[in-house]
Amino acid sequence: MEKTNVENLFEWIDQTTELIQQYDNAPYLDCLTGTLSTLFYRDIPEETDKELSQKLTDELEGAELESYTNTEIRKAVQLAILKGMKGSTQQQHLMTPETVALFTGYLAEKLTKGRENMRVFDPASGTGNLLTIVLEHLGNVSSVYAGEVDPTLIELAVLNANLQRKEIEFFHQDSLRPFLLDPVDLIVADLPVGYYPDDVRANEFELKASAGHSYSHHLFIEQSMNYTKEAGYLILVIPDFLFDSDQSDQLYAFIHEYAHIIGVIRLPKSAFKSEKNTKSILILQKNGEGVSAPKQPLLANLPSFNNTDAMNDILGQINTWFSENMPNQE
């Protein structure tokens, strides 16, 4: 069987990364940044080992970006990142599954239909996979922003965006600290889950814990709300237990005060590595002039993404919900 473009490009990225690893003796993800940088800039850093430099120059002759679409590039880079993350124990080093990101993009397209010159922000962008997939669904975007604290992940995200020819402004910082950013029309994020270690900073949030460390996923919801325009939307990939925790009453009251819940969509367990990682999608609209809650929120349990008939059925129901509850978006 003839290999696809995605397979060919992934093989080139993978082999080149392993080549760099032989000389640098560094983790795969760190060497991957060297591969993607070489691919994008078509240049080898001067300090590179002479033998490695010659091998990379030879490798470059076999990779022409112009022969790949943005989607093919994204998928090939995604496969390489997934390989580098395999076995990773760090929660923030888990990529948003492709199917979940695609579904988020579909929702973003439905919600923002008719809006022009949109500004989009992902405050927990990781390698940029969720954000770049969402952008593939939106044709009405004027500017895009992303925040990420992890140096390796943000380096991969910048190169990922560059290779896909997507203009994104990145903030390398703790995303729960203030951003030099005006509020945006749409926020998408796969919320980091866990405790936030900086109690002093957490103390500035309404959703701070009354005792002990605060939940970072709660603080991220408040931070996201702060950077959303009035009547803007938030599409958040949340842990399944979000509204069942010991601080959920406080969270629910906060959301009720500042926004309307547009919908909660339970994602299939099969989309995640393990059942404890199962997530849902929370859709919010920030309060603003002329904003009112939908007649009934969009509540759905998604079947396995592999079950085409069941997925088509649920998508039909979701489309009907949008036409009945949010006719301006149709």
Rank of each mutant, 00 (worst) to 15 (best):
V77E: 10
V77Y: 11
V77T: 12
K83T: 05
M85L: 02
T89A: 07
Q90A: 13
M95Q: 13
M95P: 08
P97H: 15
E98R: 14
T99E: 15
T99R: 14
V100P: 12
A101C: 11
A101W: 13
T104N: 12
L107V: 03
A108K: 01
E109C: 04
E109Q: 10
E109T: 02
T112E: 07
R115T: 08
M118W: 03
R119G: 05
R119A: 12
R119Q: 11
R119S: 13
F121S: 03
D122Y: 08
P123K: 09
P123Y: 11
A124D: 10
S125V: 05
S125Y: 00
S125H: 00
S125C: 10
G128T: 09
G128R: 08
N129P: 09
N129T: 12
I133S: 09
I133H: 08
L135A: 05
H137S: 15
H137T: 14
H137C: 15
S142D: 06
V144I: 01
Y145M: 08
T152R: 09
E155V: 02
A157D: 07
V158I: 15
L159K: 11
N160K: 01
N160T: 02
A161I: 03
A161C: 13
N162Y: 09
N162W: 07
L163I: 15
Q164G: 12
K166P: 05
I168L: 13
F170V: 01
F170L: 01
H172G: 02
H172E: 09
Q173G: 09
S175C: 06
L176N: 08
F179A: 05
D182Q: 13
P183Q: 07
P183L: 04
V184D: 14
V184Q: 13
D185H: 04
L186C: 01
D190S: 13
D190A: 12
L191F: 11
V193C: 10
G194W: 06
Y195R: 04
Y195I: 01
P197F: 01
V200C: 00
N203A: 07
F205M: 02
E206A: 04
L207N: 00
A209P: 02
S210F: 03
S210N: 10
S210T: 06
A211K: 07
G212S: 02
G212M: 02
S216W: 00
H217V: 03
